[in-house]
Amino acid sequence: MSYKPIRTLFELPTEENLAPGHRMCSGCGVTVGVRQILLAAPKDVIVVTATGCLEVSTVAYPYTAWRCPWVHVAFENAAAVASGIEAALKALERKGYGKRHPVIAFGGDGGTYDIGIQALSGALERGHRFLYVCYDNEAYMNTGIQRSGGTPYGTWTTTTPFGKVRPGKTEVKKNLMGIVVAHGIPYAATASISHWKDLMNKVRKALSCDGPSFIHLLTPCNRGWRFDPAQTIRIAKLAVETRYFPLYEVENGVYRITVPVPRPKPIEEFIKAQGRLRHLLRPEYADALATFKKQVEDYYSYVEMMTKATSSK
């Protein structure tokens, strides 16, 4: 894939497509991520956003924070709307009525893991040239912290409270990347807002594909994860350093860990920093803590195994 990698902050454009003055929470991980992504993308990008935090907080009529063309239609269809834009522009360009532009769709974990998975799967299978970004804050934050398919095991949310018989969410975090990669698309990657250069270069790479690409971005949410808004980047970084959220990419089926973590920090550091997980450290939830740890280890091993298995490809 040919793309121009970013090496220093000085290479970034000074004009941004997401203007200040939006209504996202202070310390919001999503905003940080979207800004980084748009700084890495060409200026003539068209953005589609699923219903969610990013949507309601950036376009409170009559205001808009978007300096690029932007559209929201519904919760579950960002990938379908993006498909339509991409295909229509392709036809318009062919007929001499218009010009193609890069298209990025943003959906939260609810809009991607759950209600939007069908539209996403369809769009990936059809091979539209667009980038889908799942900004994963691991619960339905816009409606008040309800669990999603992206919420990890043992997590407190308002629909998975911990109590006498339950430790929080009792199901595993869905392997979204596995589902996406199974479509055989040219490029898919995970990213964290704490690793800006890694994220931005993944965006550049993704947009250089002649086909669908996908970025799974971890975006800590201080409201839902229960931490001090000043700590967002630190938490995002801990997620990587504890191997909770491995950073890797899958290029034409080949896995590569882009930020290896040879000596991980103890997962307890990640857990104790957040109110949604801290209960796992109580003696009565010892079993749940063990399960949580095992799932984190299993997932990292899975990524390592896939890296090894596809290295000779």
């Binding site: 589609v48 379908a80 709307v81 498909s83 339509g84 059809r126």
Partner: peptide
């Protein structure tokens, strides 16, 4: 011609497409 995976996506795709002026 986009053979979508559901009618929900059919109309969603049309809305996105139509907004480009197509």
């Amino acid at each position: 011609f986009i053979p979508v995976e559901s009618e929900h996506s059919a109309l969603s795709t049309c809305v996105g497409g139509s907004l480009t002026g197509a």
